[in-house]
């Protein structure tokens, strides 16, 4: 809705600055859909207007009567040819309009299916209650890497997202880039899209998947190919060993405590797959699928009381002492 006064009134973010709306396209799939949307909206508005005008005209020109007035059955004998004609024309016009919409919709479907995916980047997306796992695929297995909740894409290159669900049905929706697709246990799907404009987009799980469905969002960072490659290289690197004693203490707690039973930090003994990969946690802008800002305070609170911040979350509240929490936080903050 760029340029529309409504956007200003509503205070929606500009395109590419964490926007999440279907009315502004940043890629060909969303653009093709919008190219269908506006004419459809126009046609439907015209139909509505037509009906309202017809109603207004009928009300304005018909007679009035009182409750006790007798009914008129003369229409049973007369065929009322004028009305027959008017109704037939209305039905015929509607049919034509509907056939037009069917055709336009089918044409758009074709266009969406024809996205050129030669040389596409492949990312395996696995939805969990209530976070996103991204595995960047590569023919060279050693170049694969895993991250969570923040999806980086190269601008101008097609992306093929291979979709799976780990538990229940979820749905991946990044409105500025493309329509949504469900992630269904037992059915692998793909979603193809391309970002043509650098920026940060917000996406969200669209299928109800339990208590924290509301806080199952993701951040999509579309960046120039060079920046993307640099980012991917950083992601492939294992975590650097912490330097400060506090962070080293935190690492020990992490690896010997419960954390390592669920999380991975690559390059360390922590290699469990039940929860977001934390190898580069500190590089992410937000925590827990966009629920919280990734700040020192919130991270510390998250570690000991995740359920207070995201009720129902599948990470246990744990009674760490204040100093342990500080140590853990310090360690996690080194995971750039």
């Amino acid at each position: 809705m760029s340029g529309l006064p409504l956007a200003a009134f509503l205070d929606t973010p500009p395109l590419g600055e964490l926007s999440q709306d279907a009315l502004r396209a940043a890629g060909p799939q969303a653009a093709a859909t919008l190219a269908l949307w506006w004419p459809t909206l126009a046609l439907c508005s015209a139909v509505l207007l037509g009906i309202l005008i017809a109603l207004g005209y009928a009300l304005a020109t018909s007679g009035r009567a009182v409750r006790s007035a007798p009914g008129d059955l003369s229409s049973l004998a007369n065929r009322e040819p004028g009305l027959v004609r008017a109704v037939s024309v209305g039905v015929a016009l509607s049919t034509v309009a509907l056939l037009g919409l069917v055709a336009a919709s089918a044409a758009t479907d074709r266009k969406l299916a024809s996205l050129d995916t030669a040389g596409a980047l492949q990312v395996h997306v696995i939805a969990h209650q209530w976070w996103w796992e991204f595995e960047y695929l590569d023919a060279d297995v050693t170049r694969r890497f895993v991250t969570a909740n923040e999806l980086h894409l190269p601008v101008g290159r097609a992306v093929e997202l291979v979709l799976d669900a780990d538990d229940v049905i979820h749905s991946l929706w990044i409105p500025n880039l493309a329509g949504k697709r469900d992630l269904i246990p037992g059915h692998t799907q793909t979603l193809r899209l391309r970002a043509d404009r650098a920026g940060v987009y917000r996406g969200q799980c669209a299928e109800y998947c339990g208590y924290q469905h509301a806080n199952m969002a993701l951040r999509v960072v579309a960046e120039e190919p060079g920046a993307f490659t640099a980012w991917a290289d950083r992601m492939r690197a294992p975590a650097a060993a912490p330097a400060t004693p506090l962070a080293q203490q935190g690492r020990a707690i992490f690896e010997n405590g419960t954390c390592a039973m669920c999380h991975t930090v690559s390059g360390t003994p922590a290699a469990a797959k039940h929860a977001p990969d934390l190898t580069h946690l500190a590089s992410r802008r937000r925590l827990a699928a966009e629920t919280l800002e990734n700040t020192h305070d919130l991270l510390a609170r998250w570690i000991s009381r995740p359920n207070a911040l995201k009720p129902g979350v599948y990470m246990p509240d744990q009674a760490y002492s204040e100093s342990d929490v500080q140590a853990l936080t310090a360690y996690l903050e080194t995971l750039k």
């Binding site: 969303a30 758009t108 749905s171 949504k180």
Partner: peptide, 12 residues
């Protein structure tokens, strides 16, 4: 009913 439009606004 138009699939492309529905994929945008489904479940919203």
């Amino acid at each position: 009913a138009a699939v492309p439009l529905d994929l945008q606004v489904h479940d919203t």
